[in-house]
Design a protein around this nucleic acid. Structure first.
Length: 124
DNA sequence: GTTGCCGGGTC
DNA sequence: GACCCGGCAAC
């Protein structure tokens, strides 16, 4: 099967270190060619979408300052809280290093996953 | 209980 | 910076 175009150096390193060329092991994973993140028909032209930041903190420990006294009624009934929060993807579609390789093969994880950060390998 | 990530800590 | 974990929300 074709490898992702953005083959990460980590994986290549493993290939060279783990098993010699011309011999591929059974593979830690068995991903169907249809559900690969890189096989998406939509080419990601944008190198990086700065959709980070802007994370509403649910833990309003410091409390939010009310600008006016009881004037903002509309904000009370409809806070900026969408059901399908775009800030975090649904896990049903995202197979990250941990789920793909498993805790037993943590060495195969991408660095970010090992650090419990946002996955850079499978992360779109 | 598991998973993915932020925030924060240590070196 | 690189590295790691606590803790949280979403399942």
């Amino acid at each position: 099967m074709a490898r992702p175009p953005h083959e990460d150096p980590e994986y290549l390193k493993q290939l060279k270190n783990g098993f010699t060329a011309g011999h591929q092991r059974a593979g830690p994973i068995n991903i169907p060619s249809g559900s690969l993140p890189w096989s998406s028909p939509t080419t990601a032209t944008s190198p990086s979408s700065p959709q980070k930041h802007l994370k509403l903190s649910p833990r309003t420990g410091g409390q939010i300052q009310h600008q006016s006294n009881g004037s903002q009624l509309l904000s009370l009934s409809a806070p900026n809280k969408l059901p399908g929060s775009p800030t975090r993807k649904l896990r049903g579609e995202t197979k990250k290093c941990r789920k793909v390789y498993g805790m037993e093969h943590r060495e195969q994880w991408c660095t970010q996953c090992k650090w419990k950060k946002a996955c850079t390998r499978f992360g779109d």
